Simulated assay, not measured.
Amino acid sequence: MCNIRSLLCALVLALPFSGIAHADIIDSWGAVKTPPPPALKPVTVTDPAHTALLLLDFDTSTCNDNERPDCVASLPHIADLLGRARQANLMTVYSLTSTGTLATVPSVIAAKGDEHVVRSGVDKFLNTDLEEALKSRGIQTVIIAGTVAHGAVLYTASEAALRGFKVVVATDGMSSKEPFGELSTAWILANAPAGVARNVTLTRSSMIGFPQ
């Protein structure tokens, strides 16, 4: 007598080779409609002592009109945000690319010299002391701006959220070579599962308020 369980297993294994047509995930990509941009929400920094501003991977070798014009366009917004954050005495952290230095950060958002600095790949928590530095200051919320959006911003914001920080992303302060990189990053952060989306707020720099 045939073993029914064995027959079922054989049938399942045979299905992909039985000539039955199966939908191809990749074939569906061409029909995907771009989703609308996620809603941006105003943010009020009520506890500056426990809030930090993270400026990720700004470097004149890539943040220029030839390589990444959107990065150049973002600099005035970031400069304004940085100025207001400094007035409110927020902790400021700069991350550097593998070849960057503080001297190559665009002058309009240049470091003063007493900020914390980390160097890593797309995840600025990986193999750095970023989490330790933030927690030693009692930081509970991080405001993030950076380039590239689908690199340093996406992975650092996601990792910060997973580590229990509240994350505010200044979307006019994140840039990619293509606008789709910026939109896709915003969409992923707004819709990501596993504790990311609920800890992330998308906003723009002018919608972030500080104590007077």
Rank of each mutant, 00 (worst) to 15 (best):
A145G: 08
L154K: 12
E115P: 08
L126T: 00
R137F: 06
G146D: 05
S184K: 08
E178I: 10
T147G: 10
V148N: 09
E182D: 14
T147F: 11
A161Y: 09
V118D: 03
M174C: 12
H150K: 12
E115R: 09
A149E: 11
Y155S: 14
D172V: 09
F180L: 15
E132D: 13
A186L: 09
G138F: 01
R163H: 11
S120W: 00
I144W: 07
T171L: 06
A186C: 14
H116K: 12
A157N: 11
S175P: 04
D129C: 04
E132S: 14
F165H: 08
Y155A: 13
D114P: 02
G151L: 01
G173H: 10
T171F: 00
A145I: 01
L126A: 14
G121S: 14
I188W: 00
S158H: 04
V169D: 06
E182A: 12
D129N: 15
S120D: 02
V148Y: 06
L130T: 00
N127H: 14
A170D: 13
Y155T: 12
V148P: 02
D123E: 01
E131G: 08
K124C: 05
S120T: 03
E131I: 09
K177W: 13
S175H: 01
A160D: 10
V118M: 03
V122K: 11
V142W: 06
N127E: 14
I188D: 05
V169G: 05
L134A: 08
G138L: 04
G164H: 11
Q140I: 02
S120V: 04
G146C: 07
T141V: 05
V167F: 05
E115W: 08
L154P: 02
V169L: 07
G146Y: 08
E131L: 05
L183N: 03
T128C: 01
G164D: 03
S120E: 04
L130N: 07
G181I: 11
L154S: 00
G121T: 11
A133L: 05
H116C: 09
V117D: 06
V169W: 09
G181S: 12
I144H: 05
A149P: 01
A157K: 10
V118S: 02
K177V: 14
V122E: 12
A145S: 14
K166N: 15
H150A: 15
F125Y: 15
T147N: 02
F125R: 08
D114S: 14
D123K: 06
A170V: 10
V168D: 07
E131M: 03
A161P: 02
R119N: 10
S120M: 02
V148W: 00
G113K: 05
R119Q: 15
L130V: 05
F125I: 00
S158T: 14
A186P: 00
E131C: 00
K124V: 07
Q140E: 15
E178K: 14
G164Q: 06
A157H: 01
A157F: 08
V153Q: 01
I139W: 08
I139N: 07
